[in-house]
Design a protein around this nucleic acid. Structure first.
Ligand code: MG
Length: 513
DNA sequence: TTAACATTAAACAAAT
DNA sequence: GATTTGTTTAATGTTA
């Protein structure tokens, strides 16, 4: 008999989730911008500005990526206990804060008369705000836990323990979170299983898949209110962690470890040219070429610095946007292999916004440090570029197709593009259509995602005789791959109904007129 | 509005 | 046999 997951009633637990959205407000703000060439621009803007007011007086954006704290600390070795405990304002306290918020705003920021919707920077302390759900996603939590371990690997049990230790919220949370952790470990490509010797207990160890590490870092950086470096003892953002296989094999506790051999960079769903290239080449390319291929395509040595490198080259003239942001296109983004379902794709989108403001709490010679940093970054980039070029040449000689000179990789294939268009066009129609979709037979092996709200879009293609047979079966795709068959599920009634209030509203207004 | 991202629940199998 | 671990599907919420 199965025991249903325990779901304690926590109706009395008045937990407050951190707001995910920065509060915006019309303000007059002085924004200090730092760019790679060391230029400092001071902007006086009347605009909607993120009301994220830092301690210490200057304006810091929603992440510290460009702050010196971030750049300088290869080893962001901070204790969670360093977190201040008094500035966090949860939603319950927010209302009262709003009325006198201007008192909390530092001198660098003048609040216009109309502005009321500003709250001071939140400083979240998980040890104190035990009723607030941590702002970190499960992947981030897992990542932090693993990174914080000596071996850079943990069994699930220890991941639980780490999370409980660092985020006591989960002590009283519904037990489902453990399920979520396991779910995430399992589904998320960023985490891989590593076998360990049986006598070490049940289950496997879990590690971070190196090539996805930058994505996880980026996800951390994007976490609102993140202070992740305070949770991780040794998050070395500039290097591939040394604790991959080698560290493992020699570690005290783990000398019987074996790296699982099913941690291929590709899964059955992985249809990217990038990974396909790698997979196909493994058999018939010599080791050197393969290594270079890995180097090139995987970015497996992949690190934040590499990402920044490209950013510099691509953005020699970095422009400061009107919102106090420098918009960049980072190679980091492109290198994050995140296009597959269940990549749990970390926010490695095509463009990344780095908040370019600086923290006045940073060390005094920050400008110099930044300049130094960027110059080494340029050097590194040039070196890397040469290696990549070499790899391309070698691989082309070996008859391996590369995406040389194509840093913008994985542009959606035409098939996907078509699908996308189909979906875009059909999804809205589908909402009104029958709640019972036909059977879809996919021949192309593309998305095996049976998420109804994606797949059902094909239902409306039933009017197309070219892809629909008499049984109402729809065929999609034209490759010779074995078909994936699934029955399209309808969009749930609840989901459909969700849009109802709005329609009513519109209708009401119309009749009023 | 949409796809992508994320969370939660749960069924189920295998390992311990 | 019970519990833990791991995989998978489903439903739905959230974000850009
Ligand atoms: Mg995984």
């Amino acid at each position: 008999m199965r025991v249903a997951p325990d779901r304690p009633d926590h109706s009395e637990n008045v937990g407050v989730a951190l707001s995910q959205n920065p509060v915006t407000a019309a303000t007059a703000a002085t924004v200090t911008l730092y760019s790679p060439d060391g230029l400092i621009a001071v902007q006086e803007e009347h605009d909607d500005v993120i009301a994220d007011v830092p301690r210490g007086g200057s304006v810091v954006g929603d992440d510290d990526l460009t702050s010196l704290t971030w750049l300088q600390n290869n080893n962001l070795l901070k204790s969670v206990h360093e977190l201040p405990k008094h500035e966090f304002i949860d939603d319950s306290a927010r209302d009262s804060t709003l009325s006198n918020s201007s008192a909390s705003i530092t001198s660098s920021r003048k609040i216009s008369n109309q502005c009321i919707n500003v709250i001071p920077r939140l400083s979240y302390d998980p040890q104190v705000h035990v009723n607030s759900k941590p702002p970190f996603s499960f992947s981030c939590l897992i990542f932090m836990a693993i990174e914080d371990s000596d071996e850079k690997a943990l069994p699930v049990k220890d991941i639980y323990v780490w999370i409980l230790d660092h985020f006591p919220y989960y002590r009283n949370a519904p037990t489902g979170w453990k399920n979520s952790v396991r779910h995430n470990l399992s589904l998320n490509k960023c985490f891989k299983k590593v076998e360990k010797s049986p006598h070490l207990g049940k289950g496997s160890l879990w590690m971070v898949e190196q090539r996805f590490r930058p994505c996880l870092i980026q996800a951390l950086q994007k976490t609102p209110h993140h202070q992740y470096h305070k949770f991780i003892r040794n998050l070395n953002i500039n290097k591939k962690t040394s604790a991959d296989s080698t560290n493992y094999m020699t570690g005290d506790k783990t000398d019987a470890l074996l790296i699982s051999n099913n941690d291929e960079p590709t899964t059955k769903k992985d249809t990217t040219t990038e990974t396909i290239c790698i997979k196909e080449s493994m058999d018939d390319v010599d080791a050197a070429a393969t290594a270079m291929l890995v180097l090139k395509h995987g970015g497996y040595s992949f690190d934040v610095k590499a990402g920044n490198v490209d950013f510099v080259l691509q953005n020699d003239a970095v422009s400061a946007g009107g919102q106090g942001l420098i918009e960049i296109t980072s190679e980091l983004s492109d290198n994050c292999p995140n296009n597959d379902d269940h990549n749990y794709g970390y926010p490695c989108s095509t463009s990344t916004k780095l908040n370019s403001s600086c923290d006045s709490n940073a060390v005094p010679n920050e400008k110099e440090t930044l300049n130094r940093y960027w110059s080494t970054v340029r050097e590194d980039m040039e070196e890397q570029r040469k290696i990549v070029e070499g790899a391309d040449a070698l691989l082309n000689l070996a008859g391996i197709k590369t995406t040389a000179h194509n840093t913008k990789k994985r542009v959606a294939s035409s098939i996907l593009g078509d699908e996308q268009r189909h979906r875009n066009a059909k999804r809205s129609c589908t909402e009104q259509s029958s709640l019972c979709g036909p059977l879809v037979v996919r021949k192309d092996g593309f998305s095996t995602d049976v998420n109804s709200r994606k797949s059902i879009t094909f239902a409306n293609t039933s009017s197309r005789s070219d892809i629909t047979n008499d049984d109402g079966i729809i065929f999609v795709g034209d490759s010779t791959e074995p078909p994936n068959v699934h029955r399209i599920r309808p969009r749930s009634r609840a989901s459909v109904m969700k849009n109802q209030p709005q329609r009513n509203k519109i209708e009401k207004r119309r009749t009023k007129l």
